[in-house]
Design a protein around this nucleic acid. Structure first.
Lengths: 244, 244
DNA sequence: CGGCGGTTTGAACTTACTCAAGCTTAGTGG
DNA sequence: CCACTAAGCTTGAGTAAGTTCAAACCGCCG
């Protein structure tokens, strides 16, 4: 089962936001009907991406935000003068791609599909126009960005001075929570990203990710079969996260 | 010399934004005159903080943003069930405190003065009202948040899979750049924060911070005397940052 | 069936941590 | 003004956690 199957309802041409299964988590959440309609008009038919295909490329000028409709993506940065890539984060359905590019009008990192995915394009200039006449949408955008900021800060805490076990526990619990918000199971989901991606994101070697996952499994905390993950004890994982 | 002396011009009662030396870097940058005036009216006399005093406390409800007028502060989070604190980041003059609290309407971390500091309070509800009639201010706020997001991501890259030397080099170069933008020297400035604060922020033990600073000094990259830092070779530090 | 990407596992090594002691600085009170 | 104290910083020695390198394994796709 892929993530795109878990979050059913690929947006078919002409379908509107309010028919979208992501309604609750998307930027389009909770807007007055009128705004909804204007936003709908903005969104073209969702754009399909194949596994490994880039949605945005590091360094290119920014002009449009994307809302993930189905599938998942990773944000990958190549710090100046470095050949090694760093996975900044992952995008799940309902999440907005490109918020960090608004300020400088250029994309600081590439965004690549981890599997077949669909995204709705949201031209930024037009979004801004809409925001001008629309307090609710504007507020929604601001809050979205603020929450994003907050979750980056959480990620910083997770990376700083935590053991490999704590990082991985935190990562899995975070994913679990995000899937849950999207109406998927909190306990069982697919890891669309490789061990290497996870390692890069958590500042760990891919071997360490593999070893810790194995340890968690031996301790009865999780069940891993290839990319399918089952969380057997959320409490156990929380305990690890909060250790010391 | 303290940072507050380096950025002169504490806002005296009745003074306006356009007379503030931080004009170029502040949220108030580049606004039409009319907006400037409305914003001015919003900002009370700056609030003074003593070293160690909390501006906001983790968990308290959010209702106002703050603009740092002089001095510096640190953002400190205590992750759930952890006694150890984590320094999320530092605020310099011209920077906005509280952006990450807008979304959830509650403050995820405390903000504490590192030295005597002055901040301008900006009630969020009134700022929002202003934004409604004011495209430029609104846009400015969005871009501010976006840049913040971007710099958090940079910080993530710095923490992930980098050596102690690279983290510290990156941190010092980042500070240098920020001071420079504020019209201070790019090469010499005060570290208002302790080694422990730096360590916590970079995910290093304070002893490691001390050792690496010593190593940098022996290599002729920096000159450290207590909290006064002189960068002798920006190129050298960049080289370390980009190693491997 | 063969190959390839991704994953697991093992062994040696390196980095940064912990613990501990001594030192410097700034701040306080006599 | 100096002495005393507490906080912060430096330095050293031993240790632990995670990395690197290497080899074997698995599952998927042509």
């Amino acid at each position: 089962m892929t993530a795109s199957e878990q979050v059913p309802g690929t947006r078919t041409p002409g379908t509107h936001c309010d028919a979208c299964s992501l309604h609750g988590v998307c930027l389009t959440h909770d807007l007055p009907e009128e705004t909804q309609a204007s936003l709908d008009a903005l969104l073209d038919q969702p754009r399909p991406l194949k596994r490994g295909q880039a949605l945005v490329t590091q360094g290119e000028p920014f002009d449009t935000l994307y809302l993930v409709r189905s599938g998942s993506l990773k944000q990958v940065a190549r710090p100046l003068g470095h050949e090694a890539e760093h996975v900044v984060g992952f995008y799940l359905p309902g999440e907005a791609v490109g918020l960090e590019a608004i300020g400088e009008r250029t994309c600081p990192a590439s965004v690549v599909a981890l599997e077949t995915a669909f995204v709705c394009a949201l031209p930024y200039a037009r979004l801004r126009e809409l925001c001008q006449h629309n307090t609710t949408l504007n507020e929604s955008l601001l809050r979205h960005m603020s929450r994003e900021l907050r979750s980056e800060q959480r990620q910083l805490c997770l990376l700083s001075g935590r053991t490999a076990e704590q990082r991985l526990a935190g990562f899995l619990l975070g994913l679990s929570e995000r899937f849950h918000q999207r109406g998927c199971s909190r306990y069982r989901f697919q890891l669309a990203m490789s061990r290497g991606d996870i390692g890069s994101h958590l500042g760990l070697a891919l071997e360490t990710v593999s070893r810790v996952l194995g340890r968690f499994q031996r301790q009865g905390l999780v069940q891993v079969a290839n990319r399918e993950l089952t969380l057997l004890s959320l409490e156990g994982l929380h305990a690890i996260l909060e250790e010391r």
